[in-house]
Design a protein around this nucleic acid. Structure first.
Lengths: 350, 350
DNA sequence: TTGGCAATCTGTAACGTTTCAGTATATTGA
DNA sequence: TCAATATACTGAAACGTTACAGATTGCCAA
């Protein structure tokens, strides 16, 4: 160890937060060697490697994110892109917690990138890509022909979509099988004698709208039930809109005797509308609803529910993005969540 | 412009993303000048300043976050620290959206830093401070003597708490006036003839537990009603625990004829418990509940509610943190949200 | 002995930014 | 006219990291 190095780095010990320089001084090695020793590079002696790593742990060395990011371009950031007006409430927290679980023991941070109704959904994606603010992106409200997915594929940034696309392009996704949900829901309603069914679907334009609608239609013809059109509202509408539209349709002669609802909050509105029309849930009409937290049975015990686990979705999406970043083939990072069976609380499963 | 500079920076134009160097080359100025021109430094000529800013806008220059962060230590990041198990659902999304609104037109990013039941709540705070990962922090589940607030004050990192502390230390906060909530709730119940009241409180240990309990107690003596002890459960307990405990207490001789509930989800459980005991809401017992989204009246129209706006809380918290970062005095960045009056849906306000 | 080679380690440069300590030019006061 | 000063700009260094292109050592084959 020559005199010059000692002098130059004397101050390294005085610093608040340890850097590679600090470690280099303490171990008597060069900064380069320390850097490589910490990441288990093969050309560093086994003994040296262990010594460096020990000292690093001892003094609580943590790589400076800005340094790494500046040098390598890697941000160690995953961005979750959310619509601040339209996303379902519990959806958001559950997804976040799911993502958090997975990235907890990685160097990744989770940033939330919001966009509002007024904005082009592509805006936040462009921002992320242009500023290189994230290594991976998670988006929801996925469309069959999704410009965001296309854009990210073109720009080579790893991402995962919550929901599938239908563009002939392959990318990681996690989706709930909404086709199966609709099919099971209709079968169940038919099983308890319901014949005239209405569907409160996801908003038109999102991929899972057509999945749901297709499952609903296919199951209708399978069981020989008929559809009461209910497509002037979707789960994106307000509680009040859904409620009054439900009341309206329930006052008609050919009112539905069964509902399939794609969201729990919307189900509250449907039930309110049913009761506004002076009808009774479980007697005049049955409702099968998705829910993400186990609360609907407290609301009305007559409700039939199917659980959707958003926390799982968050975890799967995070795993997919990290996988892609890590070099896995995008096609291997796709998963589909199978709906739970239709659950009843008052009525026994028949 | 000498020959050397031209040669050195020729490549600046070939780059993907523009940097100060790119701008310097395009304008024929030095990097330093460009940097200062962009931040309206006084020693740059007005004409030059405008020219640089124009070109910067034209080519879509965005400062490299890693560069800034490495040089200045400023991260342009606000961290929202969340408990992944105990936080109330809608709370999380609303807070996030509230924060997002405020930081939308700032350079700040929002990162979510989770911690789990098993962890010391101080862990994520230590991590943030030690790694310098954020310029400001927002925490919730605030305690009267909060080690996290103390730690951050000691380490000089700006933060805001959702809920107040009681340590004689001054820091920014936003809080909902839970004392006033409890008082109004009790007065309302007393106003409709309820005399034996039970409180489902926030978990012991959090500051707003005592606020709520104090308001409840003070109002009880004010209206001359009595308390039916209900403190073996809190809103942190599971739906099932609250439900069965409610059913249990409702089967007793001296059962409560009124409930004050500090959370909407818990209220569902209370009502279920009441009905489990064969009693009827609005006839045998009334319930006043806080809610953050306007859904409880769909659940049971007899419920009395007080609205708490978490989105507002998020905005206020973000404003506070940014204010502190910007140099404002912490004492001026405190706000208290006044509860809405107790709202009824079936019964008219008397 | 020499050349070659593997095994370890090292200094320098660069990522993009801001700060420090200037330098050149024009302007002012006497 | 000269010095002093204000105005407008500049290069170099530094933040912490990693990649590149060596450098040193010891060992072995020829």
């Amino acid at each position: 160890m020559d005199r010059r190095r000692t002098e130059n780095n004397e101050e390294a010990l005085a610093q608040g937060r340890p850097t590679l320089k600090t470690l280099a001084f303490m171990t008597g090695l060069g900064v380069t060697t320390v850097s490589r020793a910490l990441k288990d590079a093969p050309e560093i002696g086994a003994e040296t490697r262990r010594r460096v790593q020990l000292v690093a742990k001892q003094i609580g060395y943590r790589p400076n994110r800005a340094g790494v990011r500046l040098r390598t371009g890697r941000t160690n950031v995953i961005s979750l892109v959310l619509n601040t007006e339209r996303e379902i409430m519990s959806f958001v927290s559950d997804i976040i917690y799911g993502v958090s679980e997975v990235i907890a023991d990685t160097p990744y941070h989770l940033i939330v990138t919001p966009y509002s109704r007024s904005q082009d959904p592509l805006d936040p994606i462009r921002y992320l890509v242009e500023t290189g603010s994230a290594d991976g992106v998670i988006i929801s409200r996925t469309q069959p022909n999704d410009p965001r997915a296309r854009y990210m594929l073109e720009h080579g940034i790893p991402f995962a979509t919550h929901g599938r696309t239908d563009m002939g392009l392959v990318h990681p996704y996690h989706d709930f099988d909404n086709y199966a949900f609709a099919v099971e829901a209709v079968r169940r309603l038919a099983g308890i004698g319901r014949r005239r069914l209405a569907l409160l679907s996801p908003p038109v334009g999102l991929t899972y709208h057509s999945h749901t609608v297709n499952g609903f239609a296919d199951a209708l013809s399978e069981v020989g039930a008929s559809e009461i059109p209910f497509n002037t509202v979707s789960i994106d509408h307000t509680i009040e809109q859904i409620r009054s539209r439900t009341a309206q349709v329930m006052r008609r002669e050919d009112r539905p005797d069964g509902f399939v609802s794609s969201a729990a909050a919307a189900t509250l509105a449907i039930v309110a509308g049913i009761e506004d029309a002076g009808l009774k849930l479980g007697r005049d009409v049955d409702v099968v609803s998705k829910q993400s937290s186990d609360l609907l049975h407290l609301f009305r015990t007559e409700l039939l529910v199917v659980n959707e686990n958003f926390r799982l979705a968050g975890s799967e999406l995070a795993r997919s993005v990290l996988g892609w970043i890590g070099g896995a083939a995008p096609g291997t990072l796709q998963s589909l969540s199978v709906p739970s069976e239709v659950l009843a609380y008052r009525r026994s499963l028949d």
